[in-house]
Design a binder for these strands. Structure first.
Lengths: 153, 153
DNA sequence: TTCGTTGCAAATACTTTGCATAGCC
DNA sequence: GGCTATGCAAAGTATTTGCAACGAA
């Protein structure tokens, strides 16, 4: 959560390939077929997919893409600022998030789902708290709240 | 044999074995030598150790303890509520925390340090927010705030 | 004595690496 | 054409599992 947070995720539906290509080159990466597909999969998959999940999605469109390439590519995306690595206490370690805007996470204990959540009011509340209380010699830049809970039926 | 203080900072607390034994049985676990040592190591190691780190600590006192046992035991601790699994985006996946009281994390961008932080006032603030605003059909049980920032010099 | 726990080692899951080739710019 | 990214496969970590032997209750 950047301390000046505002906006919401884009329409996550079917991103245009040309725009993906643009985002790649803008980030200083060559726009290869694989990278376009991987970026597309990242944006389309719900939650925070693992490399494995991204790969399963990508091979639907292009069966020759290897898992190793997915790993390398996701790392290069992180290095280029196109995606973030998020931690998970469950399952495989490395998970990726295409949404570089900071947001909070709701973790469902029952289904192990991770749901993105953002709320400017909450952000303001926490930001104000730090502004008035301070953290000693620690200067906060951004924050992210992890909420564990379960679905009410 | 106790974990020798040669390997530990003198400031680290040295929990009494009898109390550890009690905590284990209270949690419904048999108080084996291995479990006592592993629980002790968890409490004594700084930060959020990996299974590997716990194992390295345990074998100092009892060289026959296997890494597999450490994994199984840490999982049973989590199941019994004696410790928590915490996520880390860096390095090995599974990390463990002996402190079951919820707390927050300050992450120093410069030094990569993770500092534990707790503040009941902040907890109340966030809890109240959820109580009044709700999260749809999601019922929050616990939460943890991750703050990234840097030291002011 | 009983039944859960341990140690071991093999199996599996996850991730990285090296190198020849393919394909973007 | 130059040079980076890819595919493949093998190596390297991390974690889980199965089972006979052990030990706490």
């Amino acid at each position: 959560m950047t301390l000046s947070s505002d906006h919401l995720p884009s329409s996550a539906c079917q991103p245009d390939r040309a725009i993906l290509r643009q985002r790649l080159t803008a980030a200083g990466l060559r726009a290869t077929t694989q990278r376009i597909l991987i970026l597309e999969s990242l944006m389309v998959l719900p939650g925070h997919p693992t490399a494995e999940q991204v790969h399963r999605q990508v091979v639907l469109a292009e069966p020759t893409v290897s898992l190793g390439t997915v790993y390398k590519t996701l790392d290069s995306f992180v290095a280029a600022g196109l995606s973030k690595r998020v931690a998970s206490a469950e399952g495989p370690c490395r998970r990726y998030d295409s949404d570089c805007n900071a947001h909070h996470h709701l973790y469902c204990i029952d289904t192990k789902e991770i749901i993105d959540y953002s709320n400017p009011e909450l952000d303001a509340l926490i930001r104000d708290f730090f502004a008035t209380h301070g953290l000693g010699n620690f200067q906060p830049h951004s924050f992210s709240l992890h909420v564990a809970g379960s679905r009410i039926s």
